[in-house]
Nucleic acid binder design. Sequence first.
DNA 1: GTTAAAGTGTAACTTTTGTTACTGCCAAAC
DNA 2: GTTTGGCAGTAACAAAAGTTACACTTTAAC
Lengths: 210, 210
Amino acid sequence: MLNYLKENFTNIFEDALIEEIIEVGTLKEVKEGEKLIEIGDYVRSMPLLISGAIKILREDEDGDELLLYFLERGDTCAMTLTCCLGQTKSEIRAVAELDTTLIMIPIQKMEEWTGKYKSWRNFVFQSYHERLTEMLETIDSIAFYNMDERLVKYLQNKKKVTNDSLINSTHQEIAYELHTSRVVVSRLLKKLESLGKIELYRNSIKIVSL
Amino acid sequence: MLNYLKENFTNIFEDALIEEIIEVGTLKEVKEGEKLIEIGDYVRSMPLLISGAIKILREDEDGDELLLYFLERGDTCAMTLTCCLGQTKSEIRAVAELDTTLIMIPIQKMEEWTGKYKSWRNFVFQSYHERLTEMLETIDSIAFYNMDERLVKYLQNKKKVTNDSLINSTHQEIAYELHTSRVVVSRLLKKLESLGKIELYRNSIKIVSL
DNA sequence: GTTAAAGTGTAACTTTTGTTACTGCCAAAC
DNA sequence: GTTTGGCAGTAACAAAAGTTACACTTTAAC
């Protein structure tokens, strides 16, 4: 755990804080597709992301989803922060996008460390800032762009997060995350293919130039 | 200022903190329609809302707007918090929805107080939580609901914030805030009127039962 | 090998939303 | 009083997105 922390959070956390994290934190590994938090859950610990990626989803009345954003190496979950402190239920679902390694920190430490360590405070505020910014980008996408542009952004984002220009998703899965229908996704993907920007295969999409 | 603070933030802030706020804070009054923050501005002080209401807006490439949420009595601007700490430009525009009274706090104090006062930390985290929740509600509206439902929510929200069932807005103004066109708003308002839920006048809308 | 299930392609159609254009009305300015 | 500009109503049309239906292919299960 020490190595993980040094690699990912050195220059961010003070040495004394790193020691404390090692004392109380527990290492957790989750497989791709595994659910970390469900809507309505009470959250009892806070994740620090070491490697992999986690997608954060919102759900509508019918149980359909919308992808909000991804968490990556060095990130933490801002929702969890507020849930921990406010003792409220989770408003979102968190699912591993890739095989992921996390350090879980008990929520009692949250409050203590925000008083004690300046580096922790900065980290927490920085996280809030990043998450708010990502929420704004999500709002921009939904409110200001058409589905074809949203699809392109989605594919670009997915490529960045997985670091792979071959995207292993079905049209149905993409439709869920964009909160639209499979037929619409197929239609728009076909158009992108005919423009030479992607190549379509069963269960996967190759990004050529987006 | 002492009275304002006692009325709105007692039980929230420690006495020592209230004293400090009085020392360094300045009272500010803004008229309805007045702009407080523009996109791209660097923010140098943090507002505590004493009375009135402020609307927070996002802008697209063409300069068209989208209403994100309102700030009310006892609120502060989460965007400002992160902007102050991160020294980044504002991502949003803030405009007074009503005549509004604020206490402005220099940003230098932010960092100091988060270390010093537990009540201040709680207030800041609470603010983040509320703003994140409101952003989620905004996302729900845009992503999951049709324009007719969004319009109803908008009218309900406006009634709540202004505490007045007579809404003094033109169709064009509503269209801007919902990021749609005037014709669409007129069409949907007319439908609501024919259902007996509202009454339409020039420059205003009376909410009967929504 | 046969069957079943999941994934994709596509046509035809509906609904929702956005656009253009034109009308009349009201209120402030002259 | 007349003019002017902003506001609202509405029709007609276009574009975007969602829906239904069905064909065909691939893969997994039996």
